[in-house]
Design a protein around this nucleic acid. Structure first.
Lengths: 138, 138
DNA sequence: GTGTTTGCAAAGAATTTGCAACGAA
DNA sequence: TTCGTTGCAAATTCTTTGCAAACAC
């Protein structure tokens, strides 16, 4: 990661330890929506002494700074998305992979509901079969 | 619960134990999207010897029969929705309550995505503030 | 009577916490 | 030097499992 980018993180109040750098590098551009364990398994290779606590600590810090989004999509575990642009997801009910959808659907609550709830953002989740799984089940 | 309804559950292959009845009665028409613990706490009053295992076992059975839907909305815990009609949710980011939205938004994937993913159903989640919390933070 | 369900306790998975040692700034 | 971060281990929270006794049908 280049110095400029590191400096930007630092300015946000994040101490840039080597472990954090490795986590950030793993997340950068990652579209696999990894779990804490996925991240740990990967960064562990570079830092065998890594602790799960460090992974969670870093993810929490990144979440607070608004640099990643926590996804509650899979029962029992969190997943993390480094893409903070508003976007939607397609979830394959067979392989459980999550795919991004960059499209503006402009879903608006009808007045009946909007009066009682102030919407900040909305998210559409599509459930179904990815092409790979659809192919396999033919 | 009336005999007719009980008979309907029985026909689905569910043995209707008193515990299951109590859980079903608690869920019927319940719009609070309760967690396993919420359900346990309530049914426990009637059956002090109740076990968490029974709650989970019943919820799993109901889910398999398509009588309830499991919601993965809150990190670390499942919530259950006895309303199986397609509907959407508004989630208050302050009090974490979940509200139902019965409205057809007809969100469709553009061809670019639809070619690679076969959508079975979609769900919209609105994040924001409920009126009670919006009022309080004024 | 048969086979499922219950209750209990123990195991398991994911996450959080306390704290001394460490290290980025 | 200072204060936040790391690593470790223990604790917590939520869920699942194994098994004998109980019970629905």
């Amino acid at each position: 990661m280049d110095k400029e980018k590191i400096e930007r993180y630092r300015k946000l109040g994040l101490k840039m330890t080597p472990q954090r750098l490795a986590i950030l590098e793993y997340l950068e551009g990652n579209t696999s929506h990894p779990s804490a364990e996925d991240i740990f398994r990967h960064v562990e290779e570079k830092f065998p002494s890594m602790s799960f606590a460090t992974v969670y600590n870093t993810l929490e810090a990144l979440k607070e700074k608004g640099l990643i989004i926590e996804l509650n999509i899979e029962p029992g575990k969190k997943r993390f998305d480094p893409n903070i642009e508003p976007h939607h997801h397609m979830i394959c009910e067979k392989c459980h992979r999550i795919f991004d959808v960059f499209e503006d659907f402009s879903v608006d609550l009808p007045p009946k509901y909007a009066q009682k709830f102030k919407v900040k953002r909305s998210q559409v989740v599509f459930y179904g079969l990815c092409s790979r799984c659809a192919e396999e089940s033919k």
